[in-house]
């Protein structure tokens, strides 16, 4: 079946969008987090048939949780709870009822102004979760490791970076990689007591920000980072310092990257230039340490565009089997169906 794109305007710029996982059935519910509006919120939506005669499902809003500032990131801790970072510097753990999606989100833990410039507000720019741990970063250059079960701060690296941090990812339970506004990447060992990075390297020589980082689902030594310039860098952490490949991809900043959960050779990226791409990563990730990819193979990377480019930035995407959701700056969300994976 061909790809089917369906857009819905929601009157808010969407910064993050996430399917809510379901155990035995195809999920119909999802979260959105808005940004850059007078009043921002996290909303829960459901795809429903609105007109009986039509065979199309439209999203309907189920509940709304207002936040003070932009929603900068949403990540799952388990099937029903999420960690949310807000531009006011807060980190919140929210829980959605497994039985009735309409009930308002429940606050489990809140760290108020976790990131701050003393008394002034400072944005918490991103977070990542791994097995109940949350790593949050902010414009103040601090890294905080939070425990979502106990609700406390297990480790805080003050001044981890002299600039603002913009991307974070867990490599292992005790290792976190961060990227700052100049594309300076640092790996932190959260067990070590000193505030020195275990390793540091540059994303590219252009001094542009690292906007997102993700790790390969089956080969944890492979790390990908998206840059503000639109390029995607791939590292093999067994020999870091220089990226194994730096691909000039999108025309403007990469906003989010996800490996397809069912097929680790498939990468999905979205960008500020309004593009959403589907990559075939066989070439780049299957290689062993000593094998070099021949140049001609490198250029024949399989990339397909999933949707005609939008006029505004696509900020977020999330996939669930053959269905991809993306949220954009034109205040719309798009559902792409029938993706082959």
């Amino acid at each position: 079946m061909p790809l089917d794109v369906q857009g819905t305007f929601v009157s808010q710029k969407i910064n993050k969008i996430r399917w809510i996982p379901e155990d035995y059935v195809e999920t119909k519910h999802f979260f959105t987090g808005s940004w850059d509006d007078e009043e921002n919120s996290i909303k829960v939506w459901s795809f429903e048939f609105i007109n009986e005669e039509e065979d199309v499902e439209y999203p309907r809003q189920l509940s709304e949780y207002k936040v003070d500032g932009d929603v900068t990131d949403i990540k799952f801790l388990d099937k029903k709870s999420i960690a949310v970072s807000v531009s006011s510097g807060d980190v919140r753990i929210l829980e959605i009822s497994a039985y009735d999606r309409q009930t308002p989100l429940k606050e489990v833990h809140t760290w108020k102004s976790l990131h701050n410039f003393s008394s002034e507000k400072c944005s918490c720019t991103a977070l990542d979760t791994l097995e109940g741990d949350v790593a949050s970063i902010g414009e103040d250059g601090n890294v905080n490791i939070l425990n979502s079960r106990r609700g406390d701060i297990t480790r805080s690296i003050k001044g981890a970076d002299s600039c603002s941090l913009h991307a974070v990812c867990f490599i292992k339970l005790n290792e976190v990689i961060t990227g700052n506004i100049r594309g300076h990447m640092k790996i932190w060992d959260t067990r070590s007591a000193n505030d020195k990075p275990a390793a540091a390297f540059l994303l590219a020589g252009d001094d542009l920000a690292a906007t997102c980082i993700t790790r390969h689902p089956t080969q944890p030594h492979i790390i990908l980072a998206g840059s503000e310039s639109g390029s995607v860098a791939v590292w093999d952490l067994r020999m870091n310092q220089f990226p194994t490949s730096l691909l000039n991809a999108h025309a403007a900043g990469v906003t989010e990257m996800h490996f397809h959960p069912e097929n680790p050779n498939k990468l999905l990226t979205s960008s500020v230039s309004g593009e959403i791409w589907d990559w075939n990563m066989d070439m780049l990730t299957k290689k062993g340490l000593e094998e070099y990819v021949p140049l001609e193979d490198k250029t024949t990377l399989n990339v397909t565009s999933l949707m005609p480019a939008l006029h505004k930035a696509i900020n977020s995407l999330h996939c669930d089997r053959g269905r991809i959701l993306c949220g954009a700056d034109n205040e719309a969300i798009y559902l792409i169906k029938n993706l082959k994976y």
Binding site: F117, E120, D140, G159, D161, C163, N180, I181
Partner: peptide, 27 residues
């Protein structure tokens, strides 16, 4: 912001951090 924070309490640390971010933006 860094300077103000520095003047307020922990002198220097705030200003220093502000300097880093300012340099990044200045560049």
């Amino acid at each position: 912001a860094g300077g103000a924070a520095g003047a307020g309490g922990a002198r220097g640390a705030g200003g220093a951090r502000g300097a880093g971010a300012a340099l990044a933006w200045g560049a």
